[in-house]
Design a protein around this nucleic acid. Structure first.
Lengths: 353, 353
DNA sequence: AGGGGGTGCTAAATCGTATTAGCGATGCGC
DNA sequence: GCGCATCGCTAATACGATTTAGCACCCCCT
């Protein structure tokens, strides 16, 4: 059934030249190595006629480069966000004619080791090690041997690996500015983390960075944070509980900064229970731009995690690393911050007079 | 920096044997080919000491099998569902020591062709061609050459390829049974498709199959469908509109079968606007088990798309295909149906007296 | 006519493994 | 003491490309 693949030797035979010549022509080294116009055309013609495609496995064995990179993440399934990140990486990879191996570690160190091994065995040109929620990670040994990039993660110990992260501090600033620009100066409550930069759920880096940005802008404007509540996990249920507790505690919030959209989803429910309208009574701004943000009523104004761009950027940075590696240059371990854009929707309004 | 990979030749040298012998021992053909116990142990020892791992690229070139399969889908990013499907495939692949290439076509035929080519160039052992929403597809030429499986998709023309699909008809039956068992016999409305099996959005197979199952069970119980409304796209906004139209049209529904959870999300909003309580006034049952189903209040009872299992099953079926292919056996093109389990939650109650 | 130099192509080695065919040594029978 | 079978291992080749080194030819000059 499967007729044999056409090889370089076939092309050479049809063109009436040696495999060497065929290889030279097809890898575009014809000028450099003085191949006659006639022969060049014969080879190109034969390759086209036979629909020749180089066997990448063979090229990989000979040259060591497989036009393949590995994408290892702790989980691919958690959310659409992960998918967008992969999508960005996929498209950037495609533009460079490179394929992507995907692997999932579920946070298990042995699985991670196995996957990195398996990729190394397949001679990937480089590896992207991704976390689906921004956090610090221990860089596995062996990753520093070849080109690699950390995505949505920071090395726990100093490392020569570059990393790509969302610009969470600037995102915090953006969220604060959204409220300031709407005229809010009091009754601004934080749901999910805060009020102090130590009041964050364990292990989150987004939490503290967003807080830093928020406090910086609010502080500079002379505005005080009215209160903050930590949620142990950033899920709707906790957002509901925290908001309800705030309202029952006699808090009279005019604006909520929720630390992500799922928390905001819960907050909406609690505000609704209390008969408060968004945004007339309470403005809400949030982070992530989860798909649900556009479904909520009123639609949620939120600072988007640029997952797609993160994926793309990781591939770009990885290729820079690969070049650098080839040239034997020093590695610098710089961190790349990807901007988080504000999605202006319907949940923010000026405070009622 | 990167010290050279340790090769079979290195192992052979350390063990003091020829590469041939080392290869024989390490591929477990030692009994069959009369290698002495002593030599066997020396080789195994050397391999362990040197941490030898076979170079899969080389093996691929020599034997033609790369322990790699391709997963090509129309989109990876749309939803968590896609992620779960990939996760299932990933885990099943890992259990077999196989890596996964991921590719995304965005529905473009030329991208699809390019991706399949790129995978073929890398000598994948087989390909899974997946659609993120169940539908019929044109099977690309060249896919029938090697082992391949259709996932969440049916071939538009007859094809020897096997396919893996959720059991949507049985899911329809399940949804109907959930309402019957709660005691509903009238005022059952369909949102998203129906009432007739021709009233479905274009191109959907899930729509007609769910309808068939629903009508079969309801019909067998002597229960009439009170009404149905097609949504052009199964998004919250349309679900809201359809439900609102139903209520304003004087419909007095006792139960809603929504054709997916996003429609149900919109329906909740419309019911809420009308002052109707779920499930006291109106029961709601739906399909998909989107993450949002567990966040809604009351939590949504829904028939789950088994994305994870679909992914796993696809890999299993693909490996069966690969074996069959190796043995040169006939292909049958059978379709595998994966059960859709009901997630019982809080949105269904007996009808008010 | 013979040497030098440029031109246009090819032979052969290589990457790391799998596999076929076969080689040398030993033991046995007669 | 010779032939033959068996045992235990290895040489050589193949997979499909890339790349280094070099060969054959022609032209020109003296």
């Amino acid at each position: 059934m499967s007729r044999r693949r056409v090889t370089l030797a076939d092309v050479a035979k049809v063109a009436g030249v040696s495999p060497t010549t065929a290889s030279l022509v097809l890898s575009g080294r014809t000028r450099e190595l003085r191949i006659s116009r006639d022969v060049e055309q014969r080879v190109v013609r034969a390759a086209a006629d036979l629909q020749y495609r180089p066997n990448i496995v063979s090229v990989g064995l000979r040259t060591g480069t497989t036009h393949t990179i590995g994408f290892v993440s702790d989980t691919v399934a958690t959310s659409r966000l992960a998918g967008d990140m992969i999508k960005g990486a996929l498209e950037a990879a495609r533009e460079r004619g490179v394929m992507l191996f995907i692997g999932e570690t579920e946070g298990a160190a042995d699985l991670e080791r196995g996957l990195l091994q398996a990729m190394h065995d397949r001679q990937v040109d480089g590896v992207i090690l991704a976390a689906m929620y921004t956090r610090t990670i221990r860089v596995p040994k062996g990753l520093t041997t070849g080109p690699a990039v950390l995505l949505n993660a920071l090395p726990r110990q100093p490392s020569p690996l570059p990393s790509v992260l969302p610009d969470e501090i600037e995102a915090g600033r953006s969220a604060a500015r959204v409220l300031l620009e709407a005229g809010h100066r009091e009754g601004i409550h934080l749901i999910g983390a805060g009020p102090g930069t130590r009041n964050v759920p364990a292990g989150t880096v987004a939490g503290v960075e967003r807080l830093i940005g928020i406090r910086e802008v609010l502080g500079a404007a002379g505005v005080k944070v009215a209160g903050g509540r930590v949620c142990p996990d950033w899920q709707p249920g906790y957002g509901y509980d925290a908001t309800r507790a705030l309202l029952e505690g006699g808090g009279r919030p005019r604006a909520l900064i929720c630390f992500n959209d799922r928390i905001a989803f819960g907050a909406y429910q609690a505000l609704d229970d209390a008969g408060l309208k968004v945004p007339a009574d309470v403005s809400v701004v949030s982070f992530d731009d989860h798909p649900i943000a556009a479904w909520m009523r009123p639609k949620l104004t939120t600072v988007a995690l640029p997952h797609y761009e993160l994926g793309r950027t990781a591939v770009d940075v990885l290729f820079a690393e690969i070049d650098r590696h080839r040239e034997g240059a020093e590695r610098e371990g710089e961190v790349h911050r990807v901007p988080m854009p504000v999605r202006y929707r319907e949940s923010v309004a000026p405070p009622a007079a």
